[in-house]
Structure formats: C-alpha cells, structure tokens
Simulated assay, not measured.
Amino acid sequence: MEQMIGIKEQNAHAVALQLSKLLADEFLLYTKTRNAHWNVEGPSFHSMHLFFEAQYEQLDEMMDSVAERIRQIGHYAPGTLNQLLRLTHLSEYTERDNRSLSFIQELLNDHESVIEFLRGNITPFAETLRDLGTSDFITGLMEKHEAMAWMLRAHLK
C-alpha cells in the first residue's frame, strides 16, 4: 500500500537508505558495547560492567526506534548481520586489551562518528528531502549520542 504521509517516494527511499546505514551503525555500536560489558577486566570491573550495561540498554532502544522510523516511512529495515555489516560506517573490531579505558576510547570514537553522521543528515533530511519528522528524529538521537559520548569522555579525564 502506498504511503500517504507527505513525503515523495524517492525522498522516502533516500531517507530510508541513510536510516539503514544509521541502524547498522547503532547495531554495531550496541554489539561492541555488549562486548565491553561481557569482557571488561580490571579493578573497576563491577562499576564498568554496570556502566556498559546501561549504555547498551540505551542503544537497544535507540536501535529499535531507528528500525521503526524506517518502517514508518514505508520501507523495510535491514535485519541480517550480513546486511548490517555491509551498511555500517564503523569498524567491527580493533585490537586492544580488556581494560575499561580501552573499551571506552573505542566506543567514544564510534559515538563521535555516529554524531557526525547524524549532524550531517539533519539539514538534508529537512531541506533537500523534505522530511522534517526524520530530521527532528535524528536530532534527538544525536543529542542522546552526545550525552553518551560525554559519559564515556568523562572517564578518560
């Protein structure tokens, strides 16, 4: 059934493609944060284990909201690991030890990459693709990633 939501199909397709890339990034960041939760070691193990758990729970909600936004504009969200790995801008894994600061630095870099991707799409979604709803949606996601990045960055001071 054709969507009658005020967005031209070609624009909705372009938005869905960018959102699919975002979903892939969110999924990979979620997975890397889960890995940190499972494998962190060191004297701050317990507090970092809980910290990473809180972060991946936030990412899970964000990831779900991105997939639902793709569906709201009439497209299907990528749902296989193969699709997600092809779409992501992030690297799956870098060599590091299992100390919390190593995980934190890697996750911070990924959050900052996602923030840049989001910031770069806010205006094009609104002005070029005429999708103010998705522009507003990703502005909110960007703010959540900024808060998460701040929490990670605070550990590195």
Rank of each mutant, 00 (worst) to 15 (best):
S65Y: 00
L152I: 00
N82L: 15
S47D: 15
W150D: 14
T128S: 14
G120Y: 07
S44F: 13
K32Y: 03
L90R: 01
Q58V: 12
M62C: 05
Y30K: 07
T80I: 13
T128I: 10
M148C: 03
I115H: 07
V66W: 04
E127Q: 08
D136G: 14
F137C: 04
A67F: 06
A67G: 05
V40A: 02
H75L: 10
A147Q: 15
S113K: 13
G42E: 08
E68D: 11
M151D: 09
R71Y: 08
E146F: 02
I138A: 10
H75P: 00
R86T: 14
G140N: 12
N35I: 05
F117E: 01
E41H: 05
E95L: 06
T31A: 15
L29I: 01
A126G: 13
L87N: 03
L50H: 10
L59N: 06
G74E: 05
F45T: 04
E68Y: 14
L107W: 00
T94V: 15
L50T: 09
E112M: 06
D97Y: 09
R69F: 06
H111T: 04
H145C: 06
N98C: 09
H46F: 15
V40R: 01
L152C: 11
H37E: 00
L101W: 08
E68K: 10
M148R: 13
T31H: 14
L59Q: 10
Y30T: 12
E127H: 05
G133D: 02
R99P: 10
F52L: 08
T88D: 00
D136Y: 04
S135N: 08
Q72S: 11
D110N: 09
M63T: 15
L84E: 05
R71L: 15
M48T: 12
L29N: 00
T134N: 04
A147D: 11
R119L: 12
G120T: 02
F52Y: 11
V114L: 13
L152P: 04
S113N: 13
V40I: 13
F125N: 01
Q83H: 08
E95G: 01
L59V: 10
I138G: 05
G140S: 12
T134V: 09
R119W: 08
D110V: 05
W150Q: 04
I115K: 07
W38G: 03
L29A: 00
I104S: 09
S100P: 01
A54I: 00
A36P: 09
V114P: 03
H145V: 01
E95Y: 07
T123Y: 01
I122W: 11
S47Q: 15
A147N: 12
I70D: 00
M151G: 07
H111K: 02
M62R: 13
L132N: 14
E127F: 00
N109G: 11
A126K: 08
